[in-house]
Design a protein around this nucleic acid. Structure first.
Length: 152
DNA sequence: GCCAACGTTGGC
DNA sequence: GCCAACGTTGGC
């Protein structure tokens, strides 16, 4: 089973916000990067688990776990001129941007800080720790998944 | 708020 | 298609 790490700024959308959503499920919208779009289109499947990662936060780090509960479908915010991530290039006939729905599974007792991820030898190859890594969804191996769970 | 590392845009 | 300018991300 594949695992993922999905970034959000908690001031924008936190794991508590996700928990409060109807059915504790929300559309993970706003992705406007082709590499991430391709991951959503080609790799992410219903039932996959993902870490909820806080970026630009105090502290930045892993806040909990969620599950992918939909297949990819067009991101409606791309069609909305009022939306922050409106993209006129994406049309109903030919949508560019995709998203999946995610469901709250668990909030960790604490945010596992980035500093501790960096310090863990088992996570030396974790995508998010690579220099300049800016993709908002990145893969996590089963071994890395277990290593992060062990840090909670 | 700084700034390095990226991605995107657009002139040519 | 090159690449400089610009915008964004995200740790610190």
């Amino acid at each position: 089973m594949p695992y993922w790490l999905m970034k959000s700024e908690p001031g924008c959308f936190s794991i508590d916000d996700l928990k409060k959503c109807p059915k504790q499920t929300e559309a993970w919208d706003g992705i406007r990067n082709y590499q991430v779009r391709n991951i959503i289109r080609d790799q992410i499947k219903v039932g996959d688990k993902a870490f909820f990662y806080y970026s630009n936060a105090k502290p930045s780090g892993v806040a909990g776990i969620m599950e992918v509960v939909s297949n990819p479908y067009p991101d409606p915010t791309a069609f909305d001129p009022e939306a922050k991530h409106y993209d006129p290039k994406s049309t109903l006939e030919n949508p560019i941007w995709l998203l999946v729905d995610v469901k709250f599974i668990k909030k960790f007792k604490r945010v596992i800080p980035l500093q501790e991820l960096r310090a863990e030898p088992l996570l030396s190859d974790l995508w998010i720790l690579r220099q300049g890594s800016r993709l908002s969804i990145t893969p996590v191996t089963a071994a890395e998944w277990e290593a992060i769970l062990a840090l909670e």
